[in-house]
Design a binder for these strands. Structure first.
Length: 555
RNA sequence: UGUCCUAUAGCGUAAUGGUAGCGCAGCAGAUUCUGGAUCUGUUAGUCUAGGUUCGAGCCCUGGUAGGACAACCA
C-alpha cells in the first residue's frame, strides 16, 4: 500500500496542482551555526531535502548567521559534514550574511517609507513597553522622529559610532497588536565587539531573525519554507515583511511541523552545550548525546536515522517519541547489515575436559544469517575457552537454558557440550566452568541437529584479542527531563556509561577500523570507537539485542 | 485586548464526509545453532456538549485540556 502523504507533502502537491510558482519547488535547510546538529535537526533536514528530492526541486543549505556573538566556523564545518553523512547534497551553500547589504538597503527603504525608526531606550524599557500577551504595549517616545533623523542615526549605528546596546532600529507597526511580534519588532541591533565568522568587523549592525529569515527566503526564491512549530506566531510577521517589498506574485510559504522530542534525552542546543562545557559528557560526539556526531560514534548508520525519521512522521501535534522506537529503528537496520562476531564481555574460563590439549579446530561462522550473500569466516576452537559469567549458574531455575551442571548446551558453530561442574575460589567466586563435548555434534554433522535448548557464544582463550567495551545506556533516568522541575543535570543516569576493560573479541576483528559495525552475538550491536588502536581495541555498544530472558527475570 | 496552534489505543501516526487501520511497546503462541531474527494471534482509541448531513474522527459552534508567543536569540 502506498504510504499516505504527510500534511507538508499534501500542501506541496496542492500547490503543484494549482500551478503555484509555475510548479517550481525550492526549499532550504537554515541552521544557525551555533551548535552541532542533533536528531531533531535530522528530522528537519529530511523534510527539507526530501521534499526537494521527491518533487524535483532544489534545496539549499543556508546558514542563518545573523548573530556573531554565538556563531563559529567550527559549527559550520560540522553541520556540513553531518548533512553529507545523512546522504544529502545541497544545491548551493548560502549564508544570511551574504544578504547583509541587501537587508541593510531594505532597512533604509523602510526608514524612508516611515516604517522604521531608531529607538535609543534600554532593552529593559523596550521590554516593559512591549506589554504582555494580555496587555497592550505603549509607544516609544522616539517612535515619531523624522525620516531624516532616523536616517542619520541609523547611519551612525552602521558606522560604528554608537556603542552596543545603545540604539536599535525598530519597525513601526502596532504596539497594541494581539500578536506580540507586531509590537514594533527590533530590526537591527548594534554589535561592534564581536567579529562575525565570515565578515569580521565589516558590519556594526546586524539584522534580527524576523528581518532576515523571510527576506533571505525571498531573495533566494524559496517556495516552501519549512520550520518548526515555535515559528507559527512569527508567520504573520514573516508575511507582513514580504508584503512590504515584494515585486511580483511570488512569495515563499512558511509551513510549520512538530519538533522531535525523544524520551530520556534532551533536544536543546543550549542544554547540550551545557553538558559539553561542564564536562558532564565527553564532548558533542559523546555516544550518549543525541547529536548526529554522537549517534554516529555510537554506531548509528545514516540508514537507521532515515528509518527512524520515516517512522515518526510530520504533524502539528507536539509529543514525545519513545526512545524504544529509535532503538527499534537501528536494530532493524543493523540486523540486516551487520556481521556477527563473538565477544565475551564478562569472561570466565570454560574448560572442555575431554577435548585434546593443544588441538585447534577452525570452525565456520556465518557472517549474517539474514543475508545469504554475506559469507562466512572462521573461528578457532580449543580446549580452553572464554564464556560469559552470566551464562553459568551452579543452581539454576527451570527456564535457565544455559550452562548448569548436568545440562547440555550448544556452543554456537561448534559442539554440543554437557556441563559437569565448576571450580570456586575460597570466596565462592567461580573461577572455572567444566564441560564435556560430544565429538559427533560438530556443526554440520547429523547429530548436531539434536534439540538443545540453549546456544552460547564462546572464544578460544588462546586465540582471542583483549578489548575495552563501553556499554552505553540512556543519558537521563527520567522519561522527560525537560518537563521535570529539577535541574536537568541532576537527572543524568549514573549508569549511562559502563566501561568494561577485561573483554575479549575474536581474532577476526584484528583489523577493525573506527566506525565499523558488528553484532556481538547474543549481546548487541557494537561499533569500533575512534579511541580504538591496533594495540587496544575499543568498542561502543550501539544498542543491546532484545532480551526476553532479562524480561522473564524481571517478572 | 489577548492572539495563535493542537486534541484518534501507553507512545507515534493513518483514515482527504462512507467498514477507525498501521508501527513501536505489551500479552500469548509457533519456530530458531543468537532467549536475536522471523511468523501467528491478541489487549487497547476518535477530549466533551451541541449543530449541519441519509451518514461526522473529519465540517460548524461552545466548552475542556495541553502548548506557543512578552530575547538587542534563532
Amino acid at each position: 500500500m502506498e504510504k499516505s502523504l504527510n500534511f507538508i507533502e499534501q500542501i506541496v502537491e496542492d500547490d503543484l496542482a494549482a500551478g503555484v510558482n509555475d510548479g517550481r519547488i525550492q526549499t532550504r535547510f537554515p541552521p544557525e551555526p551555533n551548535g552541532y546538529l542533533h536528531i531533531g535537526h535530522a528530522k528537519a533536514v529530511c523534510i527539507d531535502f526530501g521534499i526537494a528530492e521527491r518533487y524535483n526541486g532544489t534545496c539549499n543549505l543556508r546558514f542563518d548567521d545573523t548573530n556573531p556573538v554565538k556563531e563559529d566556523v567550527e559549527y559550520v564545518d560540522s553541520i556540513m559534514e553531518d548533512i553529507k553523512w545523512l546522504g544529502y547534497k545541497w544545491n548551493n551553500v548560502y549564508y544570511a550574511s551574504d544578504y547583509f547589504q541587501q537587508l541593510w538597503d531594505l532597512a533604509v527603504r523602510f526608514i524612508n517609507e516611515g516604517k522604521a525608526y531608531v529607538d535609543e531606550q534600554s532593552s529593559e524599557i523596550i521590554a516593559q513597553q512591549k506589554g504582555t500577551p494580555t496587555v497592550a504595549g505603549t509607544e516609544s517616545p522616539y517612535r515619531n522622529r523624522s525620516v531624516q533623523e532616523n536616517l542619520d542615526l541609523f547611519m551612525k549605528m552602521s558606522a560604528g559610532e554608537i556603542p552596543d546596546g545603545k540604539m536599535v532600529l525598530r519597525a513601526k507597526i502596532d504596539m497594541a497588536s494581539p500578536n506580540m511580534h507586531f509590537r514594533d519588532p527590533i530590526l537591527y541591533r548594534v554589535i561592534t565587539t564581536h567579529p562575525h565568522h565570515r565578515t569580521g568587523y565589516t558590519w556594526k549592525v546586524y539584522p534580527m531573525y524576523d528581518f532576515a529569515h523571510g527576506q533571505s527566503d525571498y531573495f533566494e526564491g524559496v517556495t516552501h519554507s519549512i520550520c518548526t512549530l515555535e515559528f507559527v506566531v512569527h508567520r504573520p510577521l514573516y508575511d507582513w515583511f514580504i508584503d512590504q517589498f515584494k515585486e511580483t506574485e511570488y512569495r515563499p510559504k512558511q509551513i510549520e511541523f512538530n519538533r522531535l522530542n525523544i524520551t530520556y534525552t534532551v533536544m536543546s542546543k543550549r542544554k547540550m552545550l551545557q553538558l559539553v562545557q561542564e564536562g558532564l559528557v565527553s564532548g558533542w560526539d559523546d555516544p550518549r548525546m543525541p547529536t548526529l556526531c554522537g549517534l554516529r560514534r555510537r554506531g548509528y548508520s545514516p540508514e537507521s536515522i532515515h528509518n527512524f525519521i520515516d517512522k515518526i512522521g510530520y504533524t502539528k501535534v507536539e509529543g514525545i517519541i519513545d526512545l524504544g522506537l529509535l532503538e527499534h529503528a537501528v536494530r532493524e537496520e543493523l540486523n540486516k547489515t551487520s556481521t556477527r562476531v563473538s565477544a565475551v564481555i564478562n569472561p570466565v574460563k570454560l574448560i572442555i575436559t575431554n577435548y585434546p590439549e593443544g588441538k585447534t579446530e577452525m570452525m565456520e561462522a556465518v557472517n549474517n544469517p539474514e543475508d545469504e550473500n554475506s559469507g562466512t569466516h572462521t573461528i578457532a576452537f580449543t580446549r580452553e575457552l572464554w564464556m560469559e559469567r552470566e551464562d553459568f549458574m551452579e543452581e539454576a531455575p527451570k527456564k535457565f537454558f544455559r550452562m548448569t551442571p548436568g545440562q547440555e548446551v550448544r556452543l554456537k558453530s561448534a559442539y554440543i557440550v554437557k556441563c559437569t561442574g565448576c571450580k570456586k575460589d575460597e570466596d565462592g567466586n567461580i573461577t572455572e566452568v567444566y564441560a564435556e563435548y560430544d565429538p559427533l555434534t560438530k556443526s554440520g554433522m547429523p547429530d548436531a541437529n539434536r534439540k538443545v535448548k540453549g546456544t552460547l557464544h564462546w572464544l578460544s582463550a588462546a586465540h582471542s584479542l583483549p578489548a575495552e567495551v563501553r556499554l552505553y545506556d540512556r543519558l537521563f533516568s527520567v522519561e522527560n527531563p525537560s518537563a521535570d522541575e529539577r535541574d536537568f543535570r541532576e537527572l543524568i543516569n549514573p549508569g549511562s556509561l559502563e566501561v568494561k576493560t577485561n573483554c575479549y573479541v575474536e581474532e577476526y576483528l584484528k583489523d577493525a577500523q573506527p566506525l565499523d559495525r558488528f553484532q556481538f552475538q547474543r549481546i548487541g550491536y557494537f561499533n569500533v570507537d575512534s579511541d580504538s588502536t591496533a594495540e587496544k581495541l575499543v568498542f561502543n555498544r550501539t544498542v543491546s539485542l532484545k532480551d526476553s530472558w532479562a524480561k522473564e527475570q524481571n517478572k
